[in-house]
Nucleic acid binder design. Structure first.
Lengths: 132, 132
DNA sequence: CCACGGGCTTACCTATGCGTCAAACCAGTT
DNA sequence: AACTGGTTTGACGCATAGGTAAGCCCGTGG
């Protein structure tokens, strides 16, 4: 009745992945046009294997991290075994470092903003109390 | 000869602000069309006061924080003195909280990614050593 | 036989946030 | 008068990441 779950299977339809990861089939096709996924075909129908599924997971993580599909594409090329070239890897590690710096900066800015909002909120509350 | 600096003056031309904050005049006009800035006019020429300059600073911080101009616009409405309504403020504080959660999530994801990159780098180095 | 669910492709549409001219208008100077 | 520099409004362009049909094909079940 219920097929084995993600990890255990080896063949996935586009809708399977879409459902599993809560994205649209359109998005998946889009990633393919950008070269991030390269599903096989049976006739004209896409057939994804575990490898594609793994890549998709990395794609989605990359997106959560705020990287562009272009960046993610570069990152994915790291996983193309043999071509693991030192320079490439360094370049990507640098990108990740930059991204971390940016996020830390943002967190700091946010602390400031939060402080201001609390202040505004306090004033608002006082005003409400007086008006009441 | 040299005019007083930002803080001390009260009138600014569009180019003054653009220069001071390292953005284009086009960007400033764009913010105006979006209602984030409302400079006065002398004839057809925009004239900005300290208030506009202050708002611009907030706009730029909002952008650093990754908020959309729409969000920033909402945030700025907080500074419209009297209308500091409790609900509004809460709503925005929520947004900031959400943003913080997101950033923390991103930082966590980044730690994972960094770990993986280090691993890849290590493998690459080993391979280089063997090849050498 | 025919409808129905999925999948495919092509192609146009959207939202963001400006960049990049273009054409025009003043103001002050030479 | 001509030129320079700054400003204005319009309007089109661009990149990113898909959304949203439209139209076609295929296999299945009633």
């Amino acid at each position: 009745m219920n097929r084995p779950e993600g990890e255990n299977r080896d063949l996935f339809a586009i809708a399977d992945l879409a459902r599993e990861f809560g994205i649209s089939t359109r998005a998946i096709r889009f990633y393919e046009t950008k070269g991030l996924l390269t599903p096989e075909r049976v006739g004209s129908t896409r057939v994804f294997r575990r490898r594609d599924r793994a890549r998709l997971i990395l794609i989605l993580r990359g997106k959560r991290l705020g990287f562009s599909l272009r960046d993610i594409s570069d990152y994915l090329s790291l996983y193309e075994a043999d071509r693991t070239q030192h320079a490439q890897v360094k370049l990507l590690i640098d990108k990740v470092d930059q991204r971390m710096d940016l996020l830390e900066q943002q967190l700091a800015d946010l602390q400031t903003t939060i402080g201001e909002l609390r202040e505004i909120k306090k004033l608002a509350n006082e005003r409400l109390a007086q008006a009441g």
